[in-house]
């Protein structure tokens, strides 16, 4: 079982500005069963768009997504109906991902009832089980989302996703909105759940330290393309793409105190996705850019076994 994303392009028309935003510019990747793929990148890199395409909230403009040899249809409606229970999504903000007028118990129960995953008389015990799996005491069942802390809400969102008995869980910045002291708890929970239910994860974050902690493979995205892809040790211990290096340097590191040089600072900003530069999208900020980078879009090429890099300069 695996998820294959093949040459996916996603464009949005902005009517007001009469322009087109290219959110994804040809993304291909594969996630194998039981693995965790981490996707890391800054705002505008297309990571959340990719998440929405994978769960079928929107269709791709071009390219295909396949789940277990089965093409996820271009029509959104179809893909939701046939794959609802196998691919689930956990959103970043637990404050907006739960219906404010529904108790957390009924929010989880509704999933089970709608898809008739349990006999009617077993729904209640299943809800209790799911909530206890994510660490929510059962006496909180009748509470409303606003009576819960951010961490608890995110646990409920996870329980609701699990209620659909998915194989693949897409986690879109699941801990970024949480308090620092609560993040570790939720991260540990995610690791446990993966073992327990033999889940496959796609973990999306801007925070390389979280991605590093949970992922088997890592894809680094920049402006709608994957610029580096490989096992975490390859990508993080011997990063090749200049953007990956800059990203790693940018993580605030609490183990190096003071005296850090702010010298290798990556200059410039991410270009506007509505107005992409020619050639390599990174060349405007790249410390090793060559004239050719302004012309040719670099393809993802094999650097070493399973380690792919989209930069001809570092592959020479």
């Amino acid at each position: 079982m695996s998820l294959k994303v093949d040459g996916v392009i996603k464009r949005y028309k902005v009517r007001a500005k009469k322009s087109t935003i290219s959110a994804l510019n040809g993304v291909s990747l594969e996630v194998k069963r039981g693995e965790t793929l981490g996707i890391v990148g800054e705002s505008g890199c297309g990571k959340s768009t990719l998440a929405r395409l994978i769960v079928g909230l929107e269709p791709p403009t071009e390219g295909t997504l396949t789940w277990n040899e089965e093409v996820l249809g271009k029509s959104v409606r179809n893909s939701l109906k046939s794959h609802h229970s196998k691919i689930q999504l956990v959103f970043q903000d637990p404050y907006s991902s739960l219906n404010p007028r529904q108790t957390i118990g009924s929010c989880v129960a509704e999933v089970i009832k709608t898809h008739q995953l349990r006999a009617v008389d077993q729904v209640d015990s299943r809800v209790t089980e799911l909530l206890s799996v994510v660490g929510i005491p059962m006496d909180m069942k009748n509470r409303f989302p606003h009576q819960l802390s951010g961490g608890q809400r995110q646990r409920v969102a996870i329980a609701r996703a699990l209620a659909a008995e998915p194989d693949l869980l897409v986690l879109d910045e699941p801990v970024s909105a949480l308090d620092v002291s609560v993040r570790a708890d939720v991260m540990n929970l995610l690791v446990d759940l993966k073992e327990r239910f033999s889940l496959t994860y796609i973990f999306i974050s801007h925070d390389l330290s979280m991605v590093r902690h949970i992922s088997d493979e890592i894809a680094v995205m920049y402006l709608g393309r994957i610029v580096e892809l490989g096992s975490w040790s390859e990508v993080l211990n011997s990063p090749r793409h200049p953007y990956t290096r800059a990203l790693i340097d940018s993580i605030p590191d609490h183990t190096k105190i003071q005296g850090i040089d702010f010298e290798n600072v990556l200059e410039g900003e991410v270009p506007d996705p509505a107005n992409l530069p020619n050639g390599c999208a990174f060349h405007l900020r790249c410390p090793i850019a060559k004239p050719n980078c302004r012309i040719e879009v670099p393809a993802l090429k094999v650097a070493k076994a399973s380690h792919l890099v989209a930069c001809p300069e570092v592959l020479k």
Binding site: S149, G151, Q152, D179, V180, S181, V182, A184, D185, M187, N188, V191, S209, M210, R212, H213, W232, S233, L236, N237, I251, D253, H254, T255
Partner: peptide, 17 residues
């Protein structure tokens, strides 16, 4: 905080809120 030395151990967590 996940440490920079890329260990995959369980994160030490603070229970509760």
């Amino acid at each position: 905080l996940p440490a920079a030395d890329s260990s995959k151990d369980k994160l030490a967590s603070i229970p509760g809120v």
